[in-house]
């Protein structure tokens, strides 16, 4: 039991982060906090990939005469791409947040919904 918990500690970290991020996205009403939650959620996935590529005792995957066991470089490379995607998403999300704040004067979801309901009623 202890071994399951400690031996797979990296996965536990991933799961905790993932759930924290997911919870933030779903529950928080503030649009910026949602973006932050989304970021945490994505980061947990990055960690998932990177830890799965690690080989115990392996070194960084740089060809060197002294090393004969390397960490799998592929997940890291993949995650590099995913990080770029994540940054783009964050940037776009925040840019939208700015524009929403300009249009609605608020970043709280319930207030925005209230304003939108009024807009629907007006027409």
């Amino acid at each position: 039991m202890l071994e399951t918990v400690l031996g797979l500690y990296n996965y536990w970290i991933v799961i905790v982060l993932m759930m924290a991020g997911f919870y933030t996205v779903i529950v928080r009403g503030n649009l910026v906090k949602k973006v932050v939650g989304l970021n945490i959620f994505q980061t947990s996935v990055f960690l998932l990939y990177i830890t799965m590529g690690t080989v115990e005792g392996g070194t960084a995957p740089i060809v060197d005469a002294g090393a004969d066991l390397y960490t799998n470089p592929l997940p890291s490379v993949l995650i590099l791409t995913a990080i770029v995607v994540g940054i783009a998403t964050t940037a776009l999300g925040l840019a939208l947040t700015v524009r929403i704040r300009e249009s609605y004067g608020t970043l709280e979801e319930d207030e925005i919904i209230e304003i939108e309901d009024r807009m629907d009623g007006e027409v």
Binding site: V25, L38, L92, G93, L96, I100, S103, Y104, E116
Partner: peptide
């Protein structure tokens, strides 16, 4: 449109 895009962004990214 902005809030719609925002919601789409959150759910789409998830």
């Amino acid at each position: 449109a902005q809030t719609a895009a925002y919601r789409y962004l959150i759910l789409g990214t998830l």
